[in-house]
C-alpha cells in the first residue's frame, strides 16, 4: 500500500483575531493537529489599543481542505473574521526580504545592477557585501534570491506574505 496525495491550490487567508496570549499557538496548532499546510504566517497587532491582530496565512490544499481550514479557523473562539483573499477578489500581496550577498569586483557591480532592476534597496554595505531590502510578491522575491544565489548569496530573511483586498472597502 502507498499513501496517495491530492492536488493542492495556494490560498492566502487573512484573519483578524483578539490579541491575546496563546493566540498564535492556537492557529499554528490547529494546522498541525488537522494536518494542514502553512507556507507562511505573519502576525502583528493592527489597532491603536493593541486589541486586534491581523494574521496572514499562505496555505495550500485541495478546495475541500481549504473550505475546512476556513471553517475550523472561524470556529476558534478568539477569531473575529476569516477571509480567503484568493477567493474574495483581486488583492495585493507583498512580502519583504533582507538578502545578504557577498562578493568583490564584477560580482558587486552585477549585484547592484540586478537590485536596481528589482527595485531592491541597499540597507547595509561593507567592502565585500551588501544587504538588500526587497518587497514584492513571493514570486518576485524568489526570483531575486535565485539570481543572487548565482552571485554570492550568504543568507536570506523573509517576512512571509501580508495581503489586503483592492478597493476602498475593508475585507
Amino acid at each position: 500500500m502507498h499513501i496517495q496525495e491530492e492536488l493542492s491550490q495556494r490560498h492566502v487567508l487573512s484573519l483578524t483575531v483578539s490579541n491575546e496570549a496563546g493566540m498564535l499557538a492556537r492557529i499554528a496548532g490547529l494546522f498541525t493537529a488537522r494536518g494542514y499546510n502553512i507556507d507562511s504566517l505573519t502576525v502583528a497587532d493592527i489597532t491603536p489599543d493593541h486589541g486586534v491582530s491581523r494574521i496572514t496565512i499562505v496555505t495550500n490544499g485541495p478546495p475541500k481542505v481549504i473550505d475546512q481550514i476556513i471553517a475550523q479557523l472561524d470556529r476558534l473562539v478568539s477569531v473575529h473574521k476569516v477571509t480567503d483573499l484568493t477567493e474574495a477578489g483581486p488583492f495585493v500581496e507583498r512580502e519583504l526580504a533582507l538578502v545578504k550577498v557577498a562578493g568583490t569586483g564584477e560580482d558587486r557591480i552585477e549585484a547592484l545592477r540586478l537590485a536596481d532592476v528589482f527595485r531592491a534597496k541597499v540597507v547595509d554595505t561593507t567592502i565585500e557585501s551588501f544587504i538588500f531590502e526587497i518587497t514584492g510578491t513571493t514570486e518576485k522575491v524568489d526570483n531575486f534570491v535565485a539570481l543572487m544565489r548565482q552571485i554570492g548569496l550568504v543568507e536570506v530573511g523573509r517576512t512571509g506574505v501580508v495581503g489586503l483586498i483592492r478597493g476602498k472597502e475593508p475585507v
Binding site: 475541500k64 473550505d67 475546512q68 471553517a71 475550523q72 472561524d74 470556529r75
Partner: peptide, 11 residues
C-alpha cells in the same frame, strides 16, 4: 450548529 461539520466528510 457547527459550520465546520458541514462538507467536512460528505458534500
Amino acid at each position: 450548529i457547527d459550520r465546520s461539520s458541514i462538507n467536512k466528510i460528505i458534500d
